[in-house]
Design a protein around this nucleic acid. Structure first.
Length: 281
DNA sequence: AACAAGACCTGCATGC
DNA sequence: TGCATGCAGGTCTTGT
């Protein structure tokens, strides 16, 4: 499911339910997702008060007061929903982790494909955790600008599409928002990464920030699995210019689809890329 | 060192 | 209806 905007939507939805609340019960209903669930996870979280809920790249960082940080990744199909504990439905087969609060709410981490993960880290050494240490800058932070991007793309012969999917270049982009950002910047996904410099890099940074910001404001994109924490759908998918829009008209070209074929799809390093071959060079 | 391909999982849409 | 195929928002590991 989730790229940065979907994870941020989940963070915003979970915050009022969890931050400042005591975890009265935590349950892990299977031994592993993509990584093993720590055997002491339940013991180390139960009874703790949640001090904060942050996001780094596509990871949620659930911080306990006087306790560990739970590091959560939603993989491709993960979701986190909040509901009342009283009269709750029985957990389904893909509801792997349950967090129940003393205030009477249950947060359910569901992940049918199990590409997600939950593990524990110590707050003092969080930035050095192997899953976080090599991440690139946050695209919505001051630390991300054209100069930084150009430096990180320098020397890369791979396509700009592949480079932007690398979380070490810039953190949080995935297959949807890379296609959308490259479209907005007018950059062909086939261009060698290192060739994106100068005004092109400026345009790309602007496009990345804009598309992520708009998507967060829309509650993310709901294609299959993504839900906001109250179960509502995100609606940014209605604003896609290119993603999953093969054969549809390009919103920038205003050209005849019968003649041009409209939006195209190709495969780059095993993943679909959507683009307009006339507007993106 | 950088890169592409493969692997990990389930569910869904499509076509025969 | 049943079955096979292909595809899906990610990222770690493997091999060139």
């Amino acid at each position: 499911m989730p790229e940065l905007p979907e994870v941020e939507t989940v963070r915003l939805g979970l915050t009022p339910a969890l931050v400042g609340e005591r975890l009265s019960r935590v349950a892990a209903r299977r031994p592993a997702l993509r990584l093993p669930i720590p055997v002491d996870l339940v013991q180390r979280l139960t009874g703790k008060v949640v001090g904060g809920l942050d996001r780094r790249a596509k990871y949620l960082l659930l911080r306990m007061i006087d306790g560990p940080v739970a590091l959560i990744h939603l993989g491709m199909s993960g979701s986190m929903t909040v509901g009342p504990l009283a009269g709750h439905a029985e957990p389904g087969p893909h509801d792997h982790i349950l967090f129940e609060t003393a205030a009477g709410l249950r947060v359910t981490f569901r992940d049918p494909r199990r590409f997600g993960l939950i593990t524990l880290a110590e707050p003092e050494t969080l930035d050095d955790h192997p899953l976080l240490a090599k991440l690139g800058p946050e695209p919505l932070s001051e630390a991300f600008d054209a100069e930084v991007l150009v430096r990180r793309l320098n020397g890369r012969q791979a396509s700009i599409k592949a480079a932007l999917l690398d979380q070490g270049v810039v953190a949080g982009l995935g297959n949807i928002y890379v296609s959308e950002a490259l479209f907005r910047a007018g950059i062909s996904p086939l261009r060698p990464a290192a060739s994106v410099t100068g005004a092109w890099a400026e345009a790309l940074v602007t496009a990345i920030r804009a598309v992520l910001g708009e998507a967060i404001a829309a509650g993310g994109s709901s294609l299959r699995d993504h839900r906001q924490t109250d179960g509502a759908l995100g609606y940014f998918q209605h604003s896609f210019a290119v993603y999953d829009r093969v054969g549809l008209p390009c919103p920038g070209c205003d050209c005849d689809v019968a003649r041009t074929g409209g939006i195209e799809r190709m495969v780059q390093s095993g993943r679909s890329t959507f683009f307009c071959g006339r507007r993106q060079r």
